[in-house]
Computed example of a mutant assay.
Amino acid sequence: MNVRLQPGETAPDFTLATDTGDTMTLSSLQGRKVILYAYPRAMTPGCTKEACDFRDSLASLQAAGFAVVGISPDEPEELAKFVERDGLTFPLLSDPEHKVLEEYGAWGEKKNYGRTITGVIRSTFVIDEAGKIEAAQYNVKATGHVARLKKQLGLDE
């Protein structure tokens, strides 16, 4: 059914529009460690909580050599509003056709309030400097996720 990336696999490269309207590629970040996180929709409660947690942890993540990038099906204009409203300080990527989300296994069937729907599976990918998957986490909970991730990365304060 859904693809699930495994540690050691090459992370699929992409070129997507950002919240600023520019484009970003994963390969442009090669040489840096990257945390790519997929979330369902800008400005919803869980996604706001997760984004703000990444924002508030960005300094320690960057000090450890990580770039943080978010990805959702939202259009760049919606992402720009999200960045502005919540003071987000890392790029958000727009994948309205969910092509990249599908390549990462972050799009598919999921349960939402007891119903089965198709959409973004909240996921986080840790990608090493060579572009390989270090960790792929699917169906993560928005609340507390960044703290758990930092602990797994050995970065908890």
Results as ranks from 00 to 15, higher is better:
Met1Gln: 07
Val3Gly: 00
Arg4Ala: 02
Leu5His: 02
Leu5Arg: 02
Gln6Thr: 01
Gly8Ile: 05
Glu9Pro: 02
Thr10Gly: 03
Thr10Leu: 12
Thr10Trp: 10
Ala11His: 00
Pro12Asp: 04
Phe14Tyr: 00
Leu16Lys: 07
Leu16Cys: 04
Asp19Pro: 02
Asp19Trp: 03
Thr20Arg: 10
Thr20Lys: 09
Gly21Ser: 08
Thr23Gly: 02
Thr25Glu: 08
Leu26Ala: 02
Ser27Val: 06
Leu29Ala: 12
Gly31Met: 07
Arg32Tyr: 09
Lys33Asn: 11
Val34Thr: 06
Val34Gln: 04
Ile35Phe: 00
Tyr37Val: 07
Tyr39Gly: 01
Met43Phe: 03
Met43Asp: 15
Met43Gly: 12
Met43Gln: 15
Thr44Gln: 09
Pro45Lys: 07
Gly46Cys: 08
Gly46Asn: 09
Cys47Met: 10
Cys47Val: 07
Cys47Arg: 05
Thr48Ser: 10
Thr48Val: 09
Lys49His: 11
Glu50Ile: 10
Cys52Lys: 14
Phe54Ala: 08
Arg55Gly: 07
Arg55Lys: 15
Arg55Ser: 06
Arg55Ala: 05
Asp56Pro: 05
Ala59Glu: 14
Ala59Cys: 06
Leu61Thr: 10
Leu61Asn: 10
Ala63Gly: 12
Ala63Asp: 12
Gly65Pro: 15
Gly65Lys: 15
Phe66His: 10
Ala67Cys: 12
Ala67Asp: 15
Val68Phe: 14
Val68Ile: 10
Gly70His: 05
Asp74Lys: 13
Glu75Gly: 11
Glu77Met: 13
Leu79Arg: 05
Ala80Thr: 07
Ala80Gly: 09
Lys81Thr: 11
Lys81Val: 09
Lys81Ser: 14
Lys81Cys: 08
Val83Thr: 12
Glu84Pro: 06
Arg85Lys: 15
Arg85Met: 15
Asp86Val: 09
Asp86Ile: 05
Gly87Trp: 15
Leu88Tyr: 12
Leu88Met: 06
Leu88Glu: 09
Phe90Thr: 00
Phe90Val: 03
Phe90Glu: 03
Pro91Thr: 06
Ser94Trp: 06
Asp95Gly: 13
Pro96Tyr: 14
Pro96Asn: 13
His98Lys: 14
His98Ala: 07
His98Thr: 12
His98Leu: 00
Leu101Ser: 03
Tyr104Ile: 06
Gly105Cys: 09
Ala106Asn: 04
Trp107Arg: 02
Gly108Cys: 08
Gly108Thr: 08
Lys110Ile: 03
Lys110Ser: 03
Lys111His: 05
Lys111Arg: 08
Asn112Asp: 08
Gly114Pro: 14
Gly114Ala: 12
Arg115Tyr: 04
Arg115Gly: 03
Thr116Glu: 14
Thr116Asp: 13
Gly119Ile: 08
Gly119Ser: 06
Gly119Asn: 07
Val120Gly: 00
Val120Glu: 00
Ile121Gly: 02
Ile121Gln: 02
Ile121Lys: 01
Ile121His: 00
Arg122Trp: 01
Ser123Ala: 13
Ser123Thr: 01
Thr124Ile: 04
Thr124Ala: 04
Val126Leu: 01
Ile127Tyr: 03
Ala130Lys: 14
Ala130Leu: 03
Ile133Leu: 04
Ala135Ser: 14
Ala135Met: 11
Ala135Lys: 08
Ala136Arg: 01
Ala136Tyr: 03
Ala136Ile: 06
Gln137Gly: 01
Tyr138Met: 00
Lys141Val: 11
His145Phe: 10
His145Arg: 11
His145Asp: 07
Ala147Glu: 13
Arg148Ile: 05
Arg148Thr: 12
Leu153Lys: 01
Glu157Cys: 11
